[in-house]
Computed example of a mutant assay.
Amino acid sequence: MLQKGSNVIIGNNVSFGENVVIGNNVVIYEGTIIGNNVIIQDNAVVGKQPTRAKASILPEVEKLPPTEIGSGVTISTSAIIYANAKIADDVFVADLATIRERVTIGEKTIIGRGVAVENDCAVGSFCKLETNCYITAYSELEDYVFIAPCVVTTNDNYMARDKERFDKFKGVTVKKGGRIGANSTILPGKIINEEGAVAAGSLVSKDVERENLVMGSPAKKYKPVDESQLLKNQ
């Protein structure tokens, strides 16, 4: 059963599973694959092809493959999911979130309100990306990662100057169970190792060791992560 609201635009060759509910003013682009028991709320856009600014340094690309939405997914009001994104089962995408092209999101992950996941990122399962955090392009977040509100990750050490930067973009890596506190900034290419933690308001300019908590600007090792907070004890 497909239930849809007013002014819904559905492109050619979109496939729907069972029990899909679509709100008002939703746009679903051609070829999109949608699983069972999916909710797409008002004003959401699914399967949008990226557009390239004239001054962009990124190469032009051919038309990208369709978006794939797993079963049990909720796409909330005014969220935008680009073409060639793959959203696994039971993911929750909150209002105003943006998931760019060639992004994968693992099962049961929460993408919070206003979160931006830029192009070519991989986000694992059981992650929580909270309100207004920014995941820069070419980043990898493994399973059980926690990103607090207003965290900023970066991928350009040259700050848009110098042609040398073109082949040196590198996002951040957060290994399994890594956690980053509110308003922290992670510099390009840095790695938060397994169950590493970053205190709120920190500036991470060096890799974070496994099961260690860092804090400050620049962030420095403060202490081991409390044993009670490790994944094995949850």
Rank of each mutant, 00 (worst) to 15 (best):
G201C: 05
G35E: 05
G5E: 02
A94F: 05
I69D: 06
A137M: 10
I105Q: 05
E164Y: 08
A122I: 15
V123A: 01
A199T: 09
D42V: 06
V151I: 07
D143C: 11
K4P: 00
I191D: 12
P50H: 07
K176Q: 13
K163N: 14
K170E: 13
I57V: 11
I80K: 04
G216M: 12
D89H: 12
A219N: 09
P59F: 10
G124N: 09
K175V: 04
S78Y: 08
Y82G: 01
S6L: 11
G35D: 03
G31E: 09
L231K: 12
I75H: 01
K4V: 00
G31I: 06
E62Y: 01
T104N: 11
N37T: 01
E62V: 07
L141Y: 01
G189C: 05
F146L: 13
N132M: 13
K108C: 11
N212T: 15
V14F: 11
G189F: 06
A160F: 14
N157E: 13
Y144D: 14
I33V: 15
T77H: 14
L187T: 15
G5V: 02
I180G: 05
L96K: 06
N157P: 00
I99T: 08
P218Y: 10
V174T: 04
G181F: 03
T136H: 04
S125C: 09
G196I: 09
V172Q: 01
P149Q: 10
E209P: 04
R165C: 07
L230W: 10
R113T: 15
S71F: 08
A200N: 02
A122D: 10
I28V: 02
L2N: 08
A53H: 13
D95S: 14
N119L: 02
C133M: 09
V225F: 06
K221R: 10
N212L: 12
P50A: 10
G178I: 00
D120Y: 13
A55M: 03
E142L: 13
A88W: 02
I9N: 12
G171P: 02
I10V: 14
S71K: 07
G181A: 07
G189M: 06
C121V: 14
T104C: 02
D89L: 07
I180H: 04
N193F: 05
N183T: 02
V123K: 01
